[in-house]
C-alpha cells in the first residue's frame, strides 16, 4: 500500500458515492448512462470473484464488497426505482461493441488461461472502456450536470493515481502488471478531454456544455 494507491481507491470510492447520492437526493438519474453503470457492475463482478477463493486483506475484502454493493445499488436505482427519470433515448451506445471485443481480447492476451484469470483480465479491459457510454451520452446531449462532472472527475482521477501507484511499485517493489498498466493508461487517456473541460469550465463555476 502506498499513498497513490490509497488516494486512488478513496477517489474511486468518492466517485461511486457521489453518483449514488446524486441519484438518491435528486430522485433522478437524468444524464446518467445506465449502460456505463451496468458495465461497471459487470467489471466488479468478474474481477472480485476471487473473494470466494483467496483472502488478501481485511481492507481488500471490505472495499471489494462496498464497490460491488454500490455498483448494483446504482443499477437498481437507474433501472428500477427511478426508471421514469432514466434518459434511455440518449443512452444509445451499443454494449456489444465493447463487451464482445473485450471478451475476445481477454481470451487472447492474459497472464494465465484459467477461468478466474480470464474473467479478471476481461474486467480490466472492460473497465478501461466502460465509461464510453457515459461520455457518448454527454456528447449527444451536449451538456452534463455539475455533480455528474464531479463524479467523472473522481473516476478519472482514480485511474490516474493508480498509474503513479504502478510507477511507485515498480521502483520500490519491482512489481508490475503489464495488462493492468496498459489498460490503465488507455482508461486515463479517455478522460483527458474531459479533464480539460472540467478544469477550464466546471472549476471556474460554469456548467459543462459542449459547443454545438
Amino acid at each position: 500500500m502506498n499513498i497513490f494507491r490509497l488516494t486512488g481507491d478513496l477517489s474511486h470510492l468518492a466517485a461511486i458515492i457521489i453518483l449514488l447520492l446524486k441519484i438518491w437526493k435528486t430522485r433522478s438519474c437524468a444524464g446518467i448512462s445506465g449502460k456505463s453503470q451496468i458495465l461497471f457492475a459487470l467489471v466488479f463482478t468478474t474481477r472480485y470473484l476471487d473473494l470466494l477463493t483467496s483472502f488478501i486483506s481485511f481492507y481488500n475484502t471490505i472495499m471489494k464488497l462496498i464497490y460491488i454493493g454500490c455498483a448494483y445499488a446504482t443499477v437498481y436505482l437507474i433501472y428500477m426505482k427511478f426508471k421514469a427519470t432514466y434518459d434511455g433515448n440518449h443512452d444509445s451506445f451499443r454494449l456489444e461493441f465493447l463487451v464482445v471485443p473485450v471478451g475476445g481480447l481477454a481470451c487472447l492476451v492474459n497472464h494465465d488461461f484459467s477461468f478466474l484469470e480470464i474473467l479478471w483480465t476481461f474486467s480490466i479491459y472492460l473497465e478501461s472502456v466502460a465509461i464510453l457510454p457515459q461520455l457518448f451520452m454527454i456528447s449527444k446531449t451536449g451538456e452534463a450536470e455539475t455533480i455528474t462532472t464531479h463524479y467523472l472527475f473522481f473516476l478519472g482521477l482514480y485511474r490516474a493515481l493508480y498509474l503513479f501507484n504502478w510507477i511507485w511499485r515498480f521502483y520500490f517493489e519491482g512489481f508490475f502488471d503489464m495488462i493492468a498498466i496498459v489498460a490503465g493508461v488507455v482508461q486515463t487517456i479517455l478522460y483527458c478531454d474531459f479533464f480539460y473541460l472540467y478544469v477550464t469550465k466546471v472549476l471556474k463555476g460554469k456548467k459543462l456544455s459542449l459547443p454545438a
Binding site: R5, D9, H12, R47, D50, T53, S54, I56, S57, N60, M63, K64, Y67, H111, D112, E117, W120, Y162, N165, F175, F176, D177, M178, A180
Partner: peptide, 10 residues
Amino acid sequence: LKDEVGHDEL
C-alpha cells in the same frame, strides 16, 4: 509477475 494468491489491487 502475477501474485500467487490473486490480485491485491482493486
